[in-house]
Design a protein around this nucleic acid. Sequence first.
DNA 1: TTAGTATATTAGAATATACTAATAAGGTAA
DNA 2: TTACCTTATTAGTATATTCTAATATACTAA
Lengths: 115, 115
Amino acid sequence: MSQSVKNQSIEYIANVMKTLGDQNRLYIFSLLSKHELCVCEITAISHLSQSNVSQHLAKLKSAGLVKERRDAQWIYYSLNSQKNPVVSEIIKLIPEPPENIFPTASSGNHSTCKF
Amino acid sequence: MSQSVKNQSIEYIANVMKTLGDQNRLYIFSLLSKHELCVCEITAISHLSQSNVSQHLAKLKSAGLVKERRDAQWIYYSLNSQKNPVVSEIIKLIPEPPENIFPTASSGNHSTCKF
DNA sequence: TTAGTATATTAGAATATACTAATAAGGTAA
DNA sequence: TTACCTTATTAGTATATTCTAATATACTAA
């Protein structure tokens, strides 16, 4: 914890809590705590609609909790742990998703998104 | 951390986050992290209505975050740190309220609630 | 008992949220 | 270019939330 979490304003912490206070968003956050994932992978794992996943990711991003990286058609999301000290503290609070729900390396070549 | 926070279900953690994802409730939670307070004290410090404070406290209690203790007319609320391992983890995330907003011991004799 | 104080509950209005369906936008590859 | 894939955005609906105002409940003390 290089920069103290406690230096954040209560307004910001409340916004983080509100953002993660939705079951589906917290679940997406927990997925990203284990692996960087593209939107279609999250959509497949979560059984939410693509539109819904996209909207949840936008809120997570707006709260400074995730970052994105484009690779061809795919946009990969991951937690913003490096820049945001709150993220690593939150990770300690949430249960880890089972590893077997994630696509395997062999299935993840993205010739087409079949997840 | 005698009992691990990570053993809690993601549904429960989401509900805790949702409960604390309101600025006013998070503020009340932060007040209680420093002092046990009765409803009229919280009402005075927070500048919220008595009804509103009561409703927020009911939600905090329903989420297992606070407990109450009656003393004559007054009901004192405090954090449920002993029974709920999540509480002490959350405390680490939130900024501390300034000490000078709390009623002093001399003003707190409750001959009438003048806070 | 009655009056007064502290807290909880209810009803209702205004606002915010999550979701679906449809469409737009950005990129790839033939 | 066109067809296709991935992601984002928009509009609209259903539901949830926060707050105020009014009232009810619980306790104390005269």
